[in-house]
Each structure stands twice: as C-alpha cells, then as structure tokens.
Design a protein around this nucleic acid. Structure first.
Lengths: 210, 210
DNA sequence: TTTTTTCTCCGTCTCGAGACGGAGGAACTT
DNA sequence: AAGTTCCTCCGTCTCGAGACGGAGAAAAAA
C-alpha cells in the first residue's frame, strides 16, 4: 500500500482527488490538509510516502511546506499539482525539492501514474512546465537585471516606482550624483535608452515585488 | 429535483463537486463539461436549472459560454466557481449574466446552499468579490485615464512602451510638438510628474493590453 | 448658428536626465 | 600584497522633457 496525503485549500479539489484514489487498491489516502502548515503536521504524524501538494494556499504556501517537509522527511516524494505553470511558481517549487510537477488539468489516470512513478523514484514533469524549464536553462536564466549589483537593483526599483533622481537620492540616503551614476550603469546593463524604458522593464520583469 | 450541470476543465474538480452533489437528495447532476463549448451543448441538451461554471478553460472560456447559454436559456442560473477574484475576471462574468460568484475555497455546504438559493432567485456573491465590486462602483470606475481623449490614450500607450517623443511622433504620424502637447495634457490629467510615472501608470492600470 | 471639444502645430524657456571622465575608500578575492 | 568589485561623489556638457502661451481647423454638441 502506498500512503498518500492530499494538500489543497480547495475542499472540492481534495475530495475530487481522493474520490479517485480510494478506488485504487494499492493507494491509501492517510490524510488531507488545507494549508501548508497543516500539511507539515499531517506528514509528521502519518509519514506518507507521497504528498500531493497545491502551491497557492492561505496559511503557509506549498513551497514553504515542501521545503519544511523535506527537512524532516527527505524520502517523502512531493508531487505538485497546481493550476499554474508560470516561472514564479514552478522554479521555487523545484528548488524546494518537489519531485514531480503536474497541472490540475491532469486526468485521474495521470495522477495515479505519477504516484506509482514517484514511489519508484521516477519524476513526472508536465510537458508545458518542462518547456518552461528548457527555456529557463537556455536564455531566460540570464535576465539582464541579474547582473545588476544590489544597490543598482534598489535604484531600479525606485525608478520602477516613478521616482526621479532627487527622490531616489533622499530615499536611499545617497547623493544625487551617485544616483546618476547608478542610473547610467543600469541603463547600459539593461540595454535601454532612458529611465522610462527602465521603469517599464522593472514593471514587466518582476523587479517590482507584488 | 434540481437539475445541475458542472463545467470545469479540471477533471478532479468536477469529480470533487459531483461527489458532494450526489449525496444531496434534491440535486440531480445531469452532466458535466470540460470546456465552454461543451458546456453550451450540454445545457441545450439537458436544460439544467443551474450551471456551476469555471471561468478559465481551454476551449471557449466561461464568460463566453455564460453569455451564449443565457441567450438560449435566459432562465438558467449560472454560478461561477473559480479560483480568482481579480477585476479582469469578475466583472466581465457579471456583465455576461452570471447569477452567483463563488470561489473554489468554498465548502460543500456553501455550494449546495448557493444552488438552492439560485433556484429561488437569490444570488450569492463571495465577500471578497463583493468588496471588489463596491470599490469598483466607488472610485475604481472613474480611473484617471478614463477622461483621456482617444489620441491621448494612444500616446499614453506609446509612453507605456518606453518610447520617446520622437518615436511617438513617427509612430503616430504627427509632429513632435503635437506629441509634446499630448504628453503635457496626459501628465496633468493623470496627475503625475513626468513620463516615467505615466509609463508606470500605463503598465499597472491595464492601459497596455495583455 | 454658435460653442465646445479635440487634434494639430509653433516658439521660448527652464531644468532634469544622462553621457563621459575621473577618483577615493571599503570589502572581498587572489 | 595586489587586484577586483562596488559604492560613493565630483564637474562638465549636451539634449530632450515639459511648462506656458498662443493658434488654426475640423467635428461634435449646444
């Protein structure tokens, strides 16, 4: 019997997944959780071999929970099942140690197959996600603003908020000349012509948080 | 018996919802669909009183499907059940004629209650969504850029792309002086200090499409 | 018809933006 | 000990941005 835990903040999704799994003779659903923190407790108590984990949850997200769980149970296979496949979600999850990555569009069979594969050490990666990973490894990883220094990044964030040099100077407690130096360096590193384009860049490439 | 149809591209979500509903004696699940187009066919065939509808789907989204269904079956109550409650999704759905709006975080009881309320003509609106609606009706509706003229909006879009005055002049086939006039008017109408802030505004307030 | 709005364009003027070159000090690497 | 990177700041110079005022033409509204 494969012990499986289901983590998702949507009750209907949990019930949906479980309603498959109970019909599978080799799979034993040992518990369900509706948040990252609940998931951690659940895993420590029931010690499942496989965890089906949603990423977006209210109280402690799936990425933190994944990290936490693997610290205590390194052999636990965590399968991410989520609605999204955007860069901001996928890669932190993989880095946190998620074993497989699936989308909620997956069918019952696919989920069951992923669980069986997981226990024998074989990961399943959603094709669309796999594509993103390839792109990331090719060129995406070297996003222009990755070779900005810490300070330049701060200045870029200010530019992205629409501040002028004087305001940035006050905000960061540095001279306006210094700000100009940073701005010039930023413009050449990002290969843009002026601060307006830098602001657009900042707002479109996740330099500005949230 | 209340005839209900379930529309969602995630099989696990459909099964999850249905697994509730079958335990309710007064509710009869007459069918399920995994896309907007399937949903339209399904409704025309089975004529349910209530449709549980996801918004984000591959083939024909929930908003279009809602519009289409209500054209043929004006008395059909469509309950949106989705993961998101952002402006871009909620308001088109309401405009399309959706009867209730719930989130997937809803519990089994809430869904069943929403269905019962729907058949007696009482809508259920998720509190978080209701808040957004209130905000929209208060100030959000009158977003500053709504009193920009057609031409000014075009110029603002160019600014939002990071163009300078010369480039905008070429792009729109007008003199650079004219561009300056438009820019000045835009800045005062949006109440921002310079084009950089205007660019940030454009990128954060949906002036730039997609 | 008169008025208002919108788009177009002009000149002038001020000021911030940005390029360019130089430089000192702190921290980390080799 | 020497080199590299980063942050800091200086002065100079050019140019585009934006404010301000004015104005003509066309179209829509009164």
């Amino acid at each position: 019997m494969i012990k499986v835990a289901v983590v998702d903040d949507h009750e209907m999704v949990r019930k949906g997944i479980i309603s498959y799994l109970v019909t599978e003779p080799e799979i034993d659903v040992v518990g369900e959780a509706k948040s990252g923190n609940e998931a951690i407790k659940l895993v420590l108590e029931t010690r499942p071999e496989v965890v089906l984990m949603d990423l977006l949850m209210e109280d402690g997200n799936g990425i933190e929970a994944t990290r936490e769980i693997l610290q205590h149970e390194p052999n636990c296979k965590i399968i991410i099942i989520t609605s999204f496949y955007d860069d901001e979600q996928v890669f932190p999850a993989i880095e946190a140690g998620a074993f497989s990555y699936m989308l909620k569009t997956a069918t019952a069979d696919e989920v069951v197959r992923a669980i069986r594969k997981a226990v024998v050490g074989e990961p399943i990666i959603e094709p669309k996600v796999a594509n993103r990973m390839m792109n990331r490894l090719r060129k995406q990883e070297k996003k222009p603003h990755h070779d900005l220094t810490e300070r330049e990044l701060e200045v870029l964030m200010c530019i992205g908020e629409g501040m002028n040099n004087q305001e940035i100077s006050t905000e960061l407690f540095i001279g306006i000349k210094t700000v100009k130096t940073h701005v010039s360096n930023i413009l050449s590193k990002l290969d843009v012509a002026d601060r307006t384009q830098a602001a657009v860049y900042a707002n479109r490439n996740g330099v500005i948080k949230k």
